[in-house]
Simulated assay, not measured.
Amino acid sequence: MSFGDPNNPYGQQPGQPPQQPQGQPGYGYPQQAPQGVPQQGYGYPQQPGQPDQAYGAYPQQQPGTLQANNGYINIPGLGTVQVASMGRRLGARAIDGVAIGVILSIIMGIGLAGAVGLTQDCDPASADYNQCMNDASASMIGVMFTWIAVIAVFTLLYEWLMIAFVGATVGKLAVGLRVVKESTGQNPGLGSSFIRYIIPIVGAFLCYIGAILVYLSPFFDNSGKLQGWHDRAAGTLVVKK
């Protein structure tokens, strides 16, 4: 029995290139694909007609696109933000109601004190007491209407100007909400903010039922954006900060 050369295990003739055993790939060399079949790189194959994307990357959302079932929306200038829930919005409205109620109570208290003071100047023993009381009553009515006008103007300016320039009232700031233009992501501005404010006020003329329906109208929005009727008219959206 003879033993082969340990440096020539496959018995190649001197001067011939080494040959690999059939059916076994060589180490360190890429495999050749069958003729006519293109070689594939590492990773998952790309679908025809689609651009290359990095592994794990999400496709870019178009502006105004509501992402599926997660409450997030892509807004120009802000990126992807979360739509405000109705619980937060109603909480913000309640805080605003308390804040406005306290301020209006102070204003009405001042007005009432001034009106009562008018009647104290009338002397019951005086001959013109009745005339004095009539004049005081007329003045009291005038004072009350003046304070009602002050209250209406204050309420208008509070909601209108704060939403226009800040994007939020005190209540919305407290719960971390902001009103933005859906098309730009910026503060609504005077025009859109006024439209958003006046629609519930018009509804309030129907025994305030219309205003309640406006504030609850986001529940009826089937787009997933929770836009109320006043938001749709103004082109605004309430989002988390």
Rank of each mutant, 00 (worst) to 15 (best):
M1R: 09
D5V: 00
D5Q: 11
D5A: 12
P6E: 10
N7S: 12
P9I: 09
Y10A: 13
Y10E: 13
Q22R: 11
G26L: 06
Q32V: 02
P38E: 00
P45D: 13
P45Y: 08
Q46T: 08
Q53L: 10
G56Y: 06
G56L: 12
Q62R: 10
P63D: 07
P63H: 09
P63W: 04
L66N: 07
A68C: 03
N69H: 08
N70R: 14
G71W: 01
I73S: 06
I73E: 03
P76Y: 04
P76S: 13
G77H: 03
L78P: 08
T80E: 10
V81L: 03
V83Y: 13
S85Q: 07
R89E: 10
L90R: 11
R93L: 14
I95G: 13
G97V: 01
L104S: 14
I106H: 07
L112R: 15
G114F: 05
A115G: 05
L118D: 12
T119I: 06
Q120W: 00
D121K: 09
D121V: 00
A125T: 08
A127Q: 14
N130C: 04
C132L: 02
A138G: 15
I141L: 12
G142Q: 01
T146I: 02
I148D: 15
V150I: 14
I151C: 13
A152W: 07
A152R: 11
V153C: 10
T155Q: 14
L157H: 02
M162A: 02
F165T: 03
V166Q: 09
G176E: 09
L177A: 08
R178Y: 02
K181N: 15
E182P: 09
N187P: 10
N187C: 05
L190T: 08
S193W: 04
Y197G: 06
P200D: 03
G203L: 07
F205S: 15
F205I: 13
C207T: 15
I209L: 15
A211P: 02
P218F: 01
K225A: 13
L226Y: 12
L226W: 05
G228K: 07
H230V: 04
H230Q: 09
D231L: 09
R232C: 05
A234R: 08
L237T: 09
V239I: 15
K240I: 02
K241P: 06
